[in-house]
Computed example of a mutant assay.
Amino acid sequence: MPALRPAPALPDAAAALLLIDIQQGFLDPRWGQRNNPQAEQRAAELLHTWRDVAAPIYHIQHLSLELGSSLGAGQPGAAFQGLVQPLAHEAVIIKHVNSAFIGTDLEARLRGEGITQLVIAGLTTDHCVSTTTRMAGNLGFRVWLVGDAAATFERTAADGRTFTAQAIHDIHLASLDGEFARVVESAEVLRGLGA
């Protein structure tokens, strides 16, 4: 497998911010225990900084095609959480699967704008965040994944073992770091942009 280009220390103001699936449906307690209750606040801080420096922003919205999903089109759960509501001029990419690149024009938009750097945050670490990060790295983008601006939920394995949300989050970040992205904290990114 060819080596991917490692991301430099920190992104600059040319990097696009991708906020993945920060939607009302993920506040439903039926998802189970989650980690990092501050993830949405950290994502909102990134969003406000990106707006301040007029850098590109993409809001990713998952609209499930599964019958009865709280993330289905028209369901209250599909709406963006208040902290990260898109402004009228900000791009919203609608997806129906885990990757923000599958079945969307995200890659074409990024290429068309000459964007080569991506900063990724959102929900959930092990599903849509991880899948999008992996694809972004494979497509040749330089990627920073903001670990404290992402979160996930506990999971039960096929053999009945339960894994905590924090363990799943940490393992996925460790797996992605250095291979598909550089994992960073929001404070690092904000300092790098002069916030």
Rank of each mutant, 00 (worst) to 15 (best):
V189D: 00
I93H: 02
H127Q: 15
T152M: 12
A3G: 12
A100L: 03
L145R: 06
L46A: 07
A7N: 07
L139S: 01
V143D: 00
D148K: 06
F26I: 13
V119E: 01
A167R: 15
E113A: 13
T132A: 07
T104R: 07
R182Q: 07
T104K: 10
G122D: 05
D28K: 10
A136M: 08
H48L: 13
A174H: 04
D148M: 05
A181E: 08
Q24P: 00
A55R: 05
Q81C: 09
W31G: 06
T124D: 09
R42M: 04
G194D: 14
W50P: 00
T104W: 00
Q23F: 02
R51T: 11
L63N: 06
D21G: 08
H62Q: 08
G192L: 07
L176H: 00
N36L: 15
G194C: 06
A187L: 10
D52P: 01
L10R: 08
S64K: 07
T104D: 08
P37F: 13
H127C: 14
G137M: 02
I115C: 03
T116A: 13
G103W: 07
G77W: 11
H59M: 05
R30W: 11
P2A: 08
Y58E: 10
V146W: 05
L83Y: 00
L190V: 02
G74P: 02
P76A: 10
P29C: 11
P29Y: 09
T164K: 12
L10G: 06
T133D: 10
A100E: 01
R111V: 08
I60N: 02
A7V: 04
E188F: 02
N35K: 12
G68P: 00
G114Y: 04
P56Y: 06
M1L: 14
A121E: 12
A3I: 10
A108R: 13
L27H: 11
T152A: 06
W144K: 02
P2D: 05
D148R: 05
T124L: 14
A158S: 13
G122S: 12
V119R: 00
D28Q: 11
A54V: 10
D28Y: 12
T152H: 04
Q166A: 14
S130H: 15
A187N: 04
E154H: 07
L18H: 02
A158H: 09
R42I: 05
R51S: 04
G137S: 08
V53C: 11
S130I: 14
G72A: 15
G25D: 01
M135T: 09
I60W: 00
A14T: 15
M135K: 10
F101P: 00
T116D: 09
C128P: 04
R5Q: 12
L46E: 06
F163I: 14
P11Y: 05
F141C: 01
G178E: 03
G147D: 03
Q117L: 08
V129H: 08
S175Y: 09
V183N: 03
Y58K: 05
A136P: 01
D28N: 15
A78K: 06
Q85Y: 00
F180P: 12
D21I: 06
R134V: 11
Q117D: 14
L4D: 03
